[in-house]
């Protein structure tokens, strides 16, 4: 099955969004369909409007920072009993405190410091991409099972109709 991943790329720099998308394509980890957002607020709106499977998020942005966006997004998923979307920080921040804050406190799945190469990107996002693919695959299987069950019920109901109707 060829799964497409809807990936949200959040960065206030248009050039950097382009670099992140190009590098992710080069990793060959998944067939990405990209959605772009300029800051955390924009990202929250795009998350609602699109079925996002994974997000790559800058830290320092106007209006709403990347770390606040990750916290808000995870809180929303928890309130609605949904799977949290795997999030990877892609940032110029690189101190241990910031890495811990992103991974341990906010719940990011990965952390990449700028500048990055395709190899570094591949190594550091592989786990998050695998998780996103697994979640999507599970949802597709559940949907397929529901469709099969529905078709079986319909077929049984038609059969009963013919026999006793």
């Amino acid at each position: 099955m060829n799964l497409k991943l809807n990936a949200l790329v959040v960065d206030d720099s248009r050039v950097m969004r382009g670099m992140v998308m190009e590098t992710l394509r080069k990793t060959g980890l998944a067939d990405f369909h990209f959605v772009e957002a300029e800051d955390g607020h924009d990202a929250l709106n795009k998350m609602t409007a699109n079925s996002i499977h994974i997000a790559f998020v800058d830290w320092n942005m106007p209006n709403m920072t990347g770390i606040d966006f990750i916290r808000a997004s995870r809180a929303h998923a928890m309130r609605n009993d949904e799977d949290p979307v795997p999030m990877v920080m892609v940032t110029s921040e690189k101190t241990m405190g910031k890495i811990q804050e992103a991974l341990d406190d906010a719940g990011a799945e990965g952390f990449i410091s700028k500048p990055f190469t395709a190899d570094e990107m591949k190594r550091k996002v592989a786990k998050a991409v695998e998780k996103a693919l697994a979640v999507q695959l599970r949802k597709l299987r559940l949907r397929r099972d529901a469709q099969i069950a529905e078709a079986e019920t319909e077929s049984k109901s038609k059969l009963f109709g013919r026999l006793f109707g």
Binding site: S13, M16, S92, E93, T95, K114
Partner: peptide, 17 residues
């Protein structure tokens, strides 16, 4: 201008470290 701003942003991350 966006790219030059991003370069100085990346430099700033290393300066912080």
């Amino acid at each position: 201008a966006d790219a030059i701003g991003e370069i100085v942003n990346v430099i700033a991350g290393e300066v912080t470290l």
